[in-house]
Simulated assay, not measured.
Amino acid sequence: MTDEELQQWIENVSLEHFGIPFRHRAFFNGRLRSTGGRYALRSHHIEINPHQLEAHGLEAVEGIIKHELCHYHLHIAGRGYRHRDADFKLLLAKVGGSRFCQALPDKAKRTLPFKYKLICCACGMEYKRKRRMDASRYRCGRCAGKLRLEEFKEA
């Protein structure tokens, strides 16, 4: 799907479900990782994650589009457009938009395993870490004891 097709789709969803035209730009943004879409407050543009379309299909992306259009129309109207606002929650339920997007399948591959652990010399509390750090600069959060760094080995 091209950006022009996405623009037309969003304009149609806006007229059909909200009864108000969408008058700004909409486009795909492949750099989005942890979100399905984004509404820009200053420019009023809507960006959609193309990986959501590939992974979950048209129906999931339509829910994301409705979600972003709720932000758009409420912000333009000067009403509560944030996730916590009652106006946003009511409009989202009315149009059937998705509250959250589905996780992308390759998300689990990006997490790194723990390589190190900090161990408190006083109480034995363990803190798992992915990166090496200078243990002498920190203290235990439980008892304020000294910490020592070890390489992590799962039992």
Rank of each mutant, 00 (worst) to 15 (best):
95 V>R: 07
116 Y>D: 03
123 C>N: 09
116 Y>K: 12
58 L>Q: 15
58 L>Y: 13
65 I>C: 04
8 Q>A: 15
116 Y>Q: 08
135 A>M: 01
119 I>T: 13
95 V>L: 05
16 E>N: 11
132 R>T: 00
1 M>Q: 12
132 R>V: 00
103 A>P: 13
35 T>M: 14
22 F>S: 06
16 E>T: 13
130 K>M: 06
48 I>Q: 03
87 D>A: 11
79 R>M: 03
41 L>N: 13
53 L>I: 01
114 F>P: 02
50 P>G: 09
51 H>Q: 10
102 Q>K: 15
71 H>R: 11
126 E>Q: 13
14 S>L: 04
127 Y>W: 07
119 I>V: 15
8 Q>F: 06
114 F>C: 07
116 Y>F: 15
136 S>I: 08
19 G>F: 05
17 H>I: 00
151 E>T: 12
122 A>K: 15
60 A>F: 09
93 A>V: 01
62 E>V: 14
140 C>Y: 00
43 S>Y: 07
90 L>T: 13
53 L>R: 05
84 R>E: 10
89 K>S: 06
110 R>P: 02
2 T>Y: 04
143 C>R: 09
155 A>E: 07
143 C>F: 01
80 G>M: 00
147 L>M: 07
41 L>H: 11
141 G>R: 03
112 L>T: 03
53 L>P: 06
19 G>Q: 09
35 T>E: 12
127 Y>R: 00
94 K>S: 10
7 Q>V: 09
17 H>P: 01
94 K>V: 05
42 R>Y: 05
91 L>F: 00
81 Y>R: 02
85 D>H: 08
82 R>M: 09
131 R>Q: 06
12 N>P: 01
108 A>Q: 07
26 A>W: 01
111 T>E: 04
28 F>R: 09
101 C>P: 12
74 L>T: 02
9 W>M: 08
151 E>N: 11
20 I>E: 14
145 G>M: 12
6 L>Q: 13
146 K>A: 14
89 K>P: 00
80 G>E: 01
124 G>D: 02
116 Y>T: 00
144 A>L: 09
137 R>S: 11
10 I>L: 15
72 Y>V: 08
13 V>L: 13
66 K>T: 08
38 R>T: 14
30 G>F: 03
2 T>P: 06
